[in-house]
């Protein structure tokens, strides 16, 4: 009897909880019926029971049969795209961190080779784990919400008109593009988080280069870092979206515009001229010019990017 209990437990533990009770009763009934058919009403020996369970097959395969369709965290539909996005994002982050740390080491030489390597490897490992977690999480959500091909087909009839247009050459997003952008974003995130004093202006006094005057007030920068990191995260998210879709579509272009607009708002909030984050110790001339230039350049870049993406998308959807 103990053997049956263990068998039933091993089957049901693999199944959704609300089906367990009934399936347990079914499997117990089935084993009992098989025993009666083979050995009549007498109590079966342990070996006989074993033979019956062997015939029924492994608990894993019986549970598989009960489950019917398989459930995936990331199913065959998405898996190849998942792997390629993961590779590219991981590559970009790897490059970005390498560059950022190389820059910071060049400016602030580390105490020893060992500390330099330890910091490098721990940063890389930490960042790659983040990449893995976020990309996997994103695809898992996509898989969870995936339309079942069979179900969708019955709901609306498919027609050839629904075939997507071939993207025009201009609309194709080459993976190198997002890769470089993600790399840059990571370099900036890394420097801002680990060595913000690197952003600064030199001044010349007595014919000698004096110390760097930081652009930012480091205390304010530190307290604003979460917002700034969100900003970078949004940009990286955008690049991942471009990688994932692979061509400019209207939806992607509109999403791009919305993201760019929110980035612009955040930039203006944190970095507008006169904002607390700018270091008042900068030379007076720079104090006015740098913030203006910064916001203007950033804004112009975002606007140009939005317009270009919009036209690329419009071009690719128009050519029917």
């Amino acid at each position: 009897m103990d053997l049956i209990n263990r068998y039933v437990y091993d089957v049901t533990r693999r199944l959704p909880e609300r089906q367990r009770g009934e399936i347990e009763k079914e499997v117990r009934g089935l084993v009992a019926d098989m025993l009666v058919e083979r050995y009549g009403d007498r109590d079966a020996s342990k070996a006989e029971l074993e033979a019956v369970l062997i015939e029924l097959g492994s608990p894993a395969s019986l549970a598989d049969n009960y489950r019917g369709s398989r459930r995936y965290l990331i199913g065959p539909d998405y898996f190849d795209r998942y792997v390629s996005v993961l590779k590219i994002v991981a590559g970009a982050v790897f490059l970005g961190i390498s560059v950022a740390l190389a820059v910071s080491y060049a400016v602030n030489p580390p105490e020893s080779l060992i500390t330099a390597f330890t910091r490098y490897f721990s940063s890389i490992v930490g960042a790659l784990l983040q990449v893995f977690a976020w990309v996997t999480g994103g695809f898992a959500i996509a898989e969870y919400n995936r339309e079942d091909a069979g179900k969708a087909a019955t709901q609306e009839t498919w027609s050839v008109a629904k075939l997507p247009e071939l993207p025009g050459r201009a609309a194709v997003i080459k993976p190198i593009d997002p890769l470089i952008n993600i790399g840059f974003n990571v370099v900036f995130i890394a420097i801002l988080n680990f060595a913000p004093e690197l952003f600064g202006s030199m001044s010349i006094s007595d014919g000698q280069l004096s110390n760097l005057v930081p652009l930012f007030r480091l205390d304010i920068l530190r307290s604003t870092l979460p917002i700034i990191n969100v900003l970078f995260a949004l940009s990286i998210l955008k690049e991942v979206g471009k990688l994932y879709i692979g061509k400019w579509t209207m939806g992607l272009a509109l999403g791009n515009i919305v993201l760019n607009a929110s980035v612009l708002v955040l930039v203006a909030l944190v970095f507008h001229p006169g904002a607390a984050i700018w270091n008042p110790d900068m030379m007076p001339v720079l104090q006015d010019i740098i913030p203006r230039f910064f916001v203007f350049a950033y804004g112009l870049g975002l606007v140009v990017d939005s317009i270009v993406s919009f036209f690329k998308a419009a071009k690719s959807t128009k050519s029917v």
Binding site: E26, M34, L62, N65
Partner: peptide
């Protein structure tokens, strides 16, 4: 019931494993 169906089908020449018939 499940097991009687296994027997009936087998007698008719259509053998089905109980482990796939019940599900």
């Amino acid at each position: 019931y499940g097991y009687s169906l296994v027997t009936v089908l087998a007698e008719g020449g259509l053998s089905v494993d109980a482990s796939s018939l019940y599900p």
